[in-house]
Amino acid sequence: MSALLEVKNVTKRFGGVVANRDVSLTVRQGEIAGLIGPNGSGKTTLFGSITGAHAVDEGDIFFEGGSIAHLRPAPIARLGLLRTWQQTRIYGEMTCAENMAISAREAHGHVFSLLRPVPAATRRKGDDLLAFVGLHEKKDDKAGSLSFGQQKLLEFAMALMNEPKLLLLDEPTAGINPTLINGLIDRLRRANTELGVTLLVIEHNMRVIMNLAHRITCLAHGEVLAEGTPNEVRDDRRVLDAYLGVA
């Protein structure tokens, strides 16, 4: 499998805080990669660096072989690299259906190409994806009126609507009703296998990530601590120590 995303020796500082130090990571075409690490270990910061939310201080980032380290978020998204947020970001005053419609890939187009009604096919696709995440009944509700967990699901559906090649998910199961988590894992897998979206998932729930990911990278104090298959990472002494606060 070829590398879709390559993070090479990235360092990112916020004032005195080194949030990422010399981080390297590869996501291969078609896989589900996991990113774990204790609170404050720099996982979300790495997502921000990859998607252009902030410039990196050192290192470079490649998507499909081209450097994206100096691009802004919108051009990166148009290349097919998208993220979701830990705190979720949706368009709160718009209905779920409208959230889906404006997340379609064709909304990337030039400003005057937007001066057309939402095509029926796009609306159907939005409906289908809302049904896919179990929000079809909420279609005409304001997105801001949904619960936190439902907003997470909506944000996931919006991302799929955009047809990304690579999707970075920041704690997709946080706030989701525990009885629904297995269903969500199943949907993440189906997004990967059926829709062909490569995934990089930040996850605190060990059961979820061990189940889902093909390979896992563990960060601690902003540095890569370990990487490998779920079993290798789980059995790594340093990972255990990091989570117990020994390292």
Partner: peptide, 13 residues
């Protein structure tokens, strides 16, 4: 209006 950073990150111009 609702979230400009989100709109940017979704590829809108």
């Amino acid at each position: 209006r609702d979230d400009q950073d989100k709109a940017d990150a979704m590829g809108l111009r």
